[in-house]
Design a protein around this nucleic acid. Structure first.
Length: 807
RNA sequence: GCCGGAGUGGCGGAACUGGUAGACGCAGCGGACUUAAAAUCCGCUGUCCUUGUAUAGGACGUGCCGGUUCGAGUCCGGCCUCCGGCACCA
């Protein structure tokens, strides 16, 4: 007898799929399903972690395909980005060649794995055909006032020599290289994502198929705060607006603090203040935001006037105030804010109690920490006696009346800084003209092509490399025709990935970003698969851009994905994340060559539930190999009969019907590990079955083959062909199961005495309670345990358990 | 500190709305086949104890302490540990 030969089987099955063109996206879907895995950054070849991600997607695809869905399952490459330039700097490689070489390698691996992508729809973000639509989007955003240029203090990575968006600073460090981020004053491009903050927040409620933790992370990231903006005026008439969530504590203000970056602070002509600010701006974000560090500040000698009492309030510059949140100025209420309290204690600033807690007194002299709770307003003139919650409203009303404040909502979310001082990205389609200022490149002149690499010096200087590309940089103003220069920055690559899911609708369209008609067929994504690490970055940008395109009328719904699935990370056996620098990357190629694609898939899927992190070890591969070759050995010799009539009373028949039910439910909930376990259990039953030449046996192995298909597609396709089927197994309907056969006729009823198992009864299904009790009581071991006791009560759960309570 | 998630055999992991804890697999042990090994196949495998040695019985056991319940891995209260996110957001 021949043995399980995965190479032969792979060749055979892949050939059949190629002929049947099963991965091709249908033109006119009736029952559409848009399945998407997050596209890949081509950093080299892929490792087991990526493989897991794509295998999960592919398993879903094959299951859905058999259920008769019309699937869109595309793939592409997030091809712009810094590592390509680093390769250029370190090894003198061309960023383009490096990137495209990596793409070719990874694409080959994906094809070897036979991940079910429609390669006709592949996209590469570094192609002008793609990035011109980045530029088009930029122009549209510009038109709508949603992109703007601003000089401000931005996150700067000294190692990458470029600015970073807020989302790309993780714990004060650069997301890519881990260098401590510094604030640097620069003029940069921002997307006004905060204009969508309220919608991004509210629509989270629509995301029913998203994991709760991602939704919570997004809510926190957006961080809506309701409060008031209150205008304090300096003695010399300069307006200093503050944002507070506690307008009810307005009468407790004893100082004002300003962020060191704030123009007013920097305009103060006083030696200590200047020194303090210089010092604060030099510090890294980590140093400055360290929790252990005591808050510091310096008095400016300037005073502001309290909007109600007219009191003089000293203005301080303090580094605990964030320039980028609210107005960059806060009112200091030491009695009712812990940070202000610590600051006031340190610098001997007075403390004034204006909120009385309901159940205790509060005195400035004795309090050891701020009281941040609610209570009754005191020392607050006309507001005395009001409950602080109501007081918030009343204070805002009073401020509005005199024009010195207003209700205001502020978000933690910052505008999206999108310009980068790097080469390998999308050129920003803007021209700077001496006469006309900033002029957007007209749409019909797109794409603005990235200049050839030869003209550029990749060694980062902090200046954009594109400035050196003379032919690119020097240009004419589209408006006046006069001398001008192009914007030399490129876009954040998160712009590329914020809308790629939409380009797949119509990837070769050179007239539009995509046609509305194609979008109507496929939008939105039905299942999006990727890592949680994108919860507050990519997944917010991508929701934003979808909403923007909806607003432009390109889409008929404004959320990108109905369901999101976060697969767990794959780490090495020591629990460390796989990375090139750690040299612990496990490639799937060796495994595929040794044990084949199907065994690799089974090993990965069986090892753990897909959402859980996985410490990869090849120990489990053995089991996967055995499983597949046992199937082969026990199926192949008995494979001929085409339409067998199974004996519906046979336990083997009942077994396969039950297995179909379990596997279907497990696939429905993406529980691949237990689905495979059910198949293994069934296989154990099959291999123990004596009459191989029965029709029941043939029926069972045929049905088994069909439900095996999503997990081990090559073997299943091969066996299916051997059964005489001419078309692909993936065009076969997913089998239904025989409901009655699933129910066992003989059930095991567990008998407990006082909650402890004392016997098991094999009993006919739906035997009456009386009978069950009767036969339980006649059981030796049960008798022994209730001997000499009085039966107080019996609890019977039908066909399951009988508990006898005896005292 | 705040917000999520998780702690189950030697290991990966099962256990639906409270109802047989440890499915399935890996590793291990014993046996068959073999000159031998590998592969394959069969059996055993949570810990401890008892005797009448056999399809036997019992105690304990799901991070810790307590509670609810006829019955808790699952529910409630209080802790501990680990992982992830946020972290002066006024």
């Amino acid at each position: 007898m021949s043995r399980y030969n995965f190479k032969e089987i792979e060749e055979f099955s892949q050939e059949r799929w190629k002929k049947a063109k099963i991965y091709k996206t249908p033109e006119n879907p009736e029952k559409k399903f848009y399945l998407l895995e997050m596209f890949a950054y081509p950093s080299g070849d892929m490792h087991i972690g990526h493989t897991r991600n794509y295998v999960i997607g592919d398993t879903v695809w094959r299951y859905k395909k058999m259920q008769g869905y019309d699937l869109l399952h595309p793939f592409g490459w997030d091809a712009f980005g810094l590592p390509a330039e680093q390769a250029a700097i370190k090894r003198g490689e061309s960023p383009k060649k490096w990137t495209y070489g990596n793409i070719a390698t990874s694409r080959n691996t994906l094809k070897r794995l036979q991940i079910s992508y429609d390669w006709d729809r592949e996209i590469i973000t570094a192609e002008p055909e793609y990035y011109r639509w980045n530029q088009w989007l930029f122009l549209k955003l510009f038109e709508k006032g949603l992109v703007y240029r601003k000089k401000s203090f931005v996150n700067w990575c000294d190692s990458c020599k470029t600015v970073l968006a807020n989302e790309q600073v993780i714990g004060g460090e650069c997301w890519r290289c881990g260098t401590s981020v510094r604030k640097k004053e620069m003029e940069q491009w921002f997307i006004r994502i905060t204009a969508y903050a309220e919608r991004l927040l509210n629509d989270i409620d629509k995301l029913e198929g998203w994991p709760e933790n991602v939704k919570i992370m997004q809510r926190n990231w957006i961080g809506r705060s309701e409060g008031a903006e209150i205008d304090f005026y300096t003695e010399d008439g300069y307006k200093l607006p503050v944002f507070t969530t506690r307008p009810d504590t307005l009468f407790g203000v004893t100082f004002i603090s300003i962020a060191p970056e704030h123009p007013y602070a920097r305009g103060i002509d006083k030696e200590e203040v200047k020194k303090y600010i210089d010092n604060a701006l030099m510090m890294s974000e980590i140093e400055r935001q360290s929790e252990e560090r005591e808050k510091t500040g310096v008095p400016t000698g300037k005073f502001a006037i309290h909007p109600f009492t007219g009191e003089k309030i000293e203005i301080w510059v303090a580094d605990y105030v964030l320039a980028s949140y609210g107005t960059g100025i806060v009112m200091g209420v030491p009695a009712h804010d812990q940070r202000d309290f610590e600051f006031a204690k340190k610098y001997n600033i007075p403390i004034k109690v204006v909120i009385m807690p309901p159940d205790q007194g509060l005195s400035p002299d004795t309090m050891e920490m701020a009281y941040e709770g609610h209570g009754m307003m005191v020392n607050s003139a006309q507001f005395n006696g009001l409950d602080s919650e109501l007081g918030k409203k009343k204070v805002i009303e009073a401020l509005e009346k005199v024009g010195k404040g207003r209700g205001k909502v502020t978000y933690r979310l910052r505008d999206w800084l999108i310009s980068r001082q790097r080469y390998w990205g999308t050129p920003i389609p803007v021209v700077h003209c001496e006469k006309c200022g900033i002029v957007p490149v007209p749409e019909e002149q797109l794409p603005v092509l990235l200049p050839p690499e030869e003209e550029v010096n990749f060694i980062p200087t902090g200046r954009s490399p594109l400035e050196d590309a003379r032919d690119f940089y020097h240009t004419k103003c589209p408006k006046c025709g006069g001398p001008a220069h192009r914007d030399a920055d490129t876009m954040d690559t998160f712009v590329d990935s914020s809308w790629y899911h939409l380009r797949y609708f119509d990837p070769h369209n050179d007239k539009e970003i995509f046609s509305k008609e194609e979008a109507r067929k496929w939008h939105p994504i039905d299942l999006y698969i990727g890592g949680v690490e994108h919860a507050t970055g990519h997944l917010i940008y991508f929701r934003f851009m979808t909403k923007f395109l909806y607003d432009l009328g390109y889409l008929d719904s404004d959320e990108p994905a109905l369901a999101l699935f976060n697969q767990g990370m794959v780490m090495d056996e020591k629990g460390e994340v796989m990375s090139k620098s750690k040299e612990n990357v496990v490639s799937p190629i060796g495994l595929i060559e040794r044990v084949g694609v199907d065994a690799t898939r089974i090993a990965i899927l069986f090892a753990a539930p897909p959402e859980r992190d996985l410490l990869w070890s090849e120990k489990g591969v053995k089991g996967a190999e055995r499983f597949l070759s046992r199937i082969y050995n026990h199926f192949m010799p008995y494979i001929d009969k085409k339409n067998p009539e199974p004996d519906k009373k046979d336990p083997l028949y009942r077994g396969i019907e039950k297995t179909k039910k379990i596997v279907t439910e497990d696939l429905e909930h993406m529980r691949f590990n237990t689905g495979i376990a059910a198949l293994m259990e069934m296989l154990n039953q099959i291999t123990a079955y004596p009459s191989r030449d029965s029709e029941t046996y043939v029926y069972v192995i045929q049905e088994f083959t069909k439900i095996l298909a999503p997990f081990a597609p090559h073997l299943a396709e091969f066996l299916y062909a051997k059964f005489g089927e001419k078309q692909s197994i993936f065009l076969e309907a997913w089998p239904s199961y025989h409901e009655d056969a699933v129910k066992e006729e003989i059930v095991t009823v567990v008998v407990q005495v006082n909650g402890k198992v004392r016997a098991r009864l094999e009993i006919e299904r739906n035997t009456s309670e009386e009978e069950v009790i009767k036969s339980a009581l006649s059981h030796e071991n049960v008798k022994r345990h209730i001997d000499g006791k009085e039966i107080r009560k019996t609890i019977y759960i039908k066909n399951k358990i009988l508990n006898i309570v005896a005292r």
